[in-house]
Write a protein that binds this DNA or RNA. Structure first.
Lengths: 338, 338
DNA sequence: GGCTGGCACTCGGACGGACAGAGTGCCAGG
DNA sequence: CCTGGCACTCTGTCCGTCCGAGTGCCAGCC
């Protein structure tokens, strides 16, 4: 168990290193934080912290930098979440309220997050699987061709073509549309399969094939998780670290283009509350020198998707977490209103 | 007027510089290309080319590198478009044919272009303003609230809410839907305003306000150019030039996030045929050290949108142009089929 | 037992001079 | 008009030196 002062030393190291981006030594520490002890004492503490694996030195006779494990301890025990100031909160709200549709909400959210945190922002579109159906529309495009349009409560629209096994009249189509909506409108996606199960039974035999085709396309649309989409922004912020440059930025850019990877990453994060993955805690290799701060957001109490930022492990955790949390909260509000 | 040999010298300089990324000197030139003359002669030619502003030296006693003007001449007069090989063409076609919907087509196109050119790919979604209406759907979500869904021939779907000045019955709605579609289905967007002009006249006085509201929302959707969307990929390729790094990559990443800027850039490019903008020819400052190769693509003969790549001015123009042209052609085919 | 000042040691980064190599411009001769 | 030769310039690199920051350890003090 580490003594209180050693924890303070670790906190000071993290803070200084995040600020200066340079290894921090014992003397500088005592000067910048009034720990009430001499550099020599701090050196002893540092040696202990190094033994435990919380900090490391890049070379002999250099200052110390935090390890992933050190950041982990910092985030878990030493750092709070820095709340946004009132003007910041107002600015967030104002900016998001100007959005005209779902795409715009997501786009603005990305922009905002990137600006606030000065890092790369990642926002997942409200996921289909957790939201509810607002309306299902069926359009007859040709005698045996129907377009299915699914509108969700979050304003998202998905469309699919359905090839019918047999021609399907306008009246049958209207009938199907009405029955379908009366069953599923306002219901959660996860409930839909159960709700439409016996729907074909109410139709003439010759129409059942088509009804079945429409239903299975609908169900397909609902479960199709690979339709989950992301928006990313603020990649230019990666260049703020001219340090170890191309070496570290390249794999990150590559990872950011692999939306599948990012979605998996966000999916793995805890469902409620904020998740911070530090360095090697990220399963994906390209992100081994970055941290990912993510949180769920949604209209009402329930999370329908996630958002977060990707930045160097050497980031301002309290500030970033504060910004992420605040943005998630306000996006949720906006979605609930619309 | 430059002699034939001087043009060859310029061509050789461009080719070598693109290959090696290092200033090229007279001796190396004569060794790698059999120009049939000695280095001294080449030096004279180089001096002439430098006087004319086609090449420059970074420092005294260094080799020459092409200027923007030099690349311009190279592209206009000296370089052909390198056609794709048959296997490459087959690969392109196969890859694109796997797409399941419009989003997927665009996503695959971006990926493909980025991979083929090893540069940043930019693909504009098929633009609304140049395509035709497949169907307009109206859904009553509440007594005085209608959702307008517009489906285009390229498979794109746009939706908008319409707040009605007065309640609007289901039968009126069906009536409006039918009349609207009979007028605009299959027509070009640009013709729509003219076609619906006198539509309200056929309705009862109390419904006209709503009809008007629906129509103006429709027209708004049609002209709303800021709804033009882009997809971008291959940003990791920017790191292939560890040269002048953060200095040059940062503004490019920033520019790539400004979709408005990119759309403007693509819009300014010639409407037919391939456009190459080199270095300072790009109005946007952040792209002053990059070249943009773009071309229109579309189903049928007509271009509905543009696609292209962004890379360093020092790029393989013939190869890039070949890839861009080939991809545009095949995407057009895919869109026409679906 | 824990804190402190002192001391020797190590290492990286900055500075500066020397050197080699590449490339140029110019000139006289073919 | 082309060519070979020559003097010149500049860059990048290598190497040795030096300085400062930071460490670990130890003996002494509270």
């Amino acid at each position: 168990m580490l003594s209180e002062r050693r924890l303070q030393v670790l906190r000071a190291i993290v803070q200084d290193y995040v600020g200066t981006e340079e290894p921090v030594g014992s003397k500088a520490l005592t000067e910048r934080h009034n720990l009430g002890v001499s550099p020599a004492t701090v050196r002893n503490d540092m040696a202990a912290l190094e033994d435990e694996g919380f900090i490391a030195q890049p070379h002999t006779s250099a200052g110390r930098i935090p390890t992933d494990k050190g950041y982990r301890l910092f985030v878990d025990k030493l750092a709070g979440v820095k709340p946004m100031t009132a003007p910041e909160r107002r600015a967030i709200q104002n900016f998001l309220e100007g959005a005209v549709d779902l795409d715009d909400v997501v786009a603005r959210t990305v922009r905002l997050l990137a600006q606030l945190t000065r890092q790369v922002a990642v926002v997942q579109y409200p996921s289909l699987t957790r939201s509810t159906v607002r309306h299902v529309e069926l359009l007859s495009l040709a005698p045996a061709r129907v377009m299915l349009v699914l509108i969700t409560d979050t304003g998202r629209v998905e469309q699919r073509m359905v090839d019918c096994p047999a021609p399907f009249g306008e009246t049958s189509l209207a009938d199907l549309r009405a029955r379908l909506n009366s069953r599923v409108a306002g219901r959660r996606f996860s409930d839909v399969p159960r709700l439409v199960e016996d729907l074909p039974e109410g139709f003439d035999v010759e129409d059942r094939g088509t009804v079945q085709a429409v239903l299975s396309t609908l169900l397909e649309t609902l479960v199709e998780e690979n339709e989950e989409r992301l928006m990313i922004g603020g990649t230019a912020n990666l260049t703020r670290f001219p340090h170890d440059f191309p070496l570290t930025i390249r794999p990150v850019l590559e990872a950011l283009e692999e939306h599948v990877v990012l979605l998996k990453l966000l999916g793995e994060a805890g469902d409620s509350g904020m998740t911070v993955r530090i360095g090697h805690e990220n399963a994906y290799e390209g992100l081994n020198s970055t941290s990912v701060v993510s949180v769920g957001y949604g209209s009402g109490g329930e999370a329908v998707a996630k958002l977060g930022v990707v930045g160097p492990t050497r980031m301002d955790y309290p500030g970033t977490m504060g910004a992420v949390r605040a943005v998630a909260r306000y996006v949720g509000q906006i979605l609930a209103e619309s």
